[in-house]
Amino acid sequence: MPGRLIFGIDSRLRLGTEARNFGTRALLITETVFRSSRLLEEIRSVLTVAGVEAISCAEIGPDSTSRAGEECMKLAKSARVQMIIGLGGLRVLSTAKAVAALGANIADIDSLNDERSSEASVYPYIEIPTTCRNPFMLRDDFFLVDARNRHSTVFRRSEAFPKLVVIDSRLAEGLSDRSRSAILLDTMLHSLEGYFSRSSNFVSNTIFLRSLGLLVGSIDAAAGRDSPGPDTGMHQAGLLSAFGLTMGSLGIGSATAITAGGLFQVPKSGIAALMLPIILEYGRRACPDKLVRLAPIVDEDTRRMGTAEAADTVIASLRRRIDRFQLPLRLSDYGLESGDLPVLAAAAAAMGLADQMPQPLDQEEILDLLNEVL
């Protein structure tokens, strides 16, 4: 596992002393929603106390593209920073990782396909996720939304591994119940696709099963929880999912959610939540034996059932849990129309994230899946 990882409640308070190992000037890239927040002030204060001057760039929003990364890079160069810190959700963290790993011309997506185009100077990258999930956390890749056409592209750079990841479940306390539920199901989608993928192995499957078990526990606990409080189990599941994805692979559900966020400015976690049942049904066809192994996790006794019946039982149990959250179940609930689906299917296929699915899907098959949730 690359770099160093600190996990636990209030672990953000250790950020300053850890960051000091990389220098005294940092560019802190975060979301517009945190621009005047207590959280941003606290993070800056923790760094300052340790002797690290932090320059904030709180310009990443739900509609941000590769242009935002270009502006962050210009600021990093003019301020002569020595490290990049990403604070926020998936889009912020990918942008910050890109700034740390690539050098100039982040807005020129075409040139980034040639790894030789990146500059020799690379910034150490520190990641502070404010939710439980980032499937790229422990990998050497990230995604950017092309400013020209809003298509999302995944890039891989050996320099992109984070030097430090700080996971503090208290950072998610401000999430609404709706956002928290969608993010939980988004994390479940990551683990399920990684578990299904052809590139998974015994080790990663064991990790994904543990992640899925923790997520099911979080869903069950949410039904009787009086106060939101920090959900350490949910963050453990997110970390295990990210670890498993260093061996397994995301699939078409995650690709659809990421590309829909870029193309139509809809919440990535919301789209992932409605794609989760679709991926479960796909698993029934492509790898039912793997679904059966989930039976103990969802408290179902399938020992006397055949594979097909046992897989159906597992899916039904998981769908009952998903339905508890009463999240939107159709793409049309997010404003998408039938004419948008061919564009979305083509963009999702082009990401390449679905290449390791047990039964590959072409663009027409992806379109058929999307029509099921229109």
Rank of each mutant, 00 (worst) to 15 (best):
A345N: 12
E300R: 12
D312M: 06
R330E: 13
P296I: 13
D355Q: 14
V314E: 02
G335Y: 12
L329K: 14
L329Q: 15
T313A: 14
D333W: 05
A346I: 03
L341K: 09
T307C: 14
R284Y: 03
E309I: 08
R303K: 15
E281M: 06
Q326G: 08
E309S: 13
L353F: 05
A286M: 06
E309C: 07
L353A: 06
L336M: 13
P342Y: 05
L331G: 09
R304K: 10
R320T: 07
A349V: 05
A349L: 08
L344Q: 09
F325I: 01
A308R: 15
A346Y: 04
R319H: 05
A308K: 15
R303N: 15
L336G: 00
R330Q: 14
G306R: 13
L353W: 01
F325E: 08
A311Y: 04
T302F: 01
A349Q: 11
R319D: 10
L318T: 07
R303Y: 11
R324V: 03
G339C: 04
A347I: 08
D355W: 02
C287M: 05
P296G: 12
D312W: 04
A347K: 03
R330P: 08
L318A: 07
C287Q: 05
R293W: 01
D299V: 10
A348T: 13
D323Q: 13
K290M: 00
E337A: 09
L344F: 08
L341V: 09
R284E: 02
V343Q: 14
R304D: 11
E300S: 10
A345Q: 11
R330G: 05
I322Q: 02
L318H: 04
G339F: 04
S332E: 12
R284D: 01
R303I: 11
D299L: 14
I322T: 02
V314N: 02
P296H: 12
A316T: 14
S317M: 06
V314T: 09
D301E: 11
V298S: 10
E309T: 12
D301R: 12
K290S: 00
D289C: 03
R321M: 11
A349C: 08
V292P: 00
A286E: 02
D333M: 06
L329G: 12
V343L: 14
D333C: 07
A295N: 06
P328N: 04
V343C: 10
A286H: 10
L331K: 03
E281T: 03
L353D: 01
G352Q: 12
A346V: 05
S338I: 10
G335H: 13
R324G: 03
G283E: 02
L294M: 14
